[in-house]
Amino acid sequence: MKSDPDRELVEACQATAPTGLEGAFRRLYDQYKDRVYNVCFRITGNATDALDASQETFGIMFRKIAEFRFESKFSSWVYRIAVNAAIDHKRRAAARWLPSFEPQNEHTRPAARADLRDERTEAPLSAATRHELEAEIQAAISRLSPKLRAIVVLRYVENLSYDEIAEALQISLGTVKSRLSRAHEALDRELTPVLDRHFLR
């Protein structure tokens, strides 16, 4: 068993059945809602699917929280549920997606541009260029395979360590490194035009 910062809260949730967002469930939800939604948004690539995947994540989390035995960090468990829910949702959504004659991809869909705010990259790019760049990065991530997408999101969006990623995805440290290396290769192909456009002009 490991020391877990969420232990007390999780144990409080385990003591009662979840019927609504009250007490410990509300605190746990508030603590994780942005992280879960963020992972789901970056993996699914749009707000609608992210919302559905987040709902599913919390549904599973609260339904199965009584079975959690602290064999890993609680946050790793939550990330694992969120990644799986988002990948499953993305796969289901892709199966439902009808082909269109309109040139359209995920970052041109309206929901994909929602809530992208970060002032760190404001200079020297203009706001319009920043939105465009973010959309292109998101599109590049969305074109990765689900496994590589998950590892890029956990590493660069959620800033998890290699060990945390290994625990969350239940893979070895070596697999984390090799997957990240492959993700960089794939991203290099996807982002070369973006890099050239935004950094060489």
């Binding site: 919302l51 929602a114 809530d115 970060d118 969006v157 991203l187």
Partner: peptide, 15 residues
């Protein structure tokens, strides 16, 4: 570039 992606906030609708 990857880190430049903004952290999105969960919408109130999620509650």
């Amino acid at each position: 570039l990857a880190r430049s992606l903004a952290r999105v906030v969960a919408p109130r609708q999620l509650d």
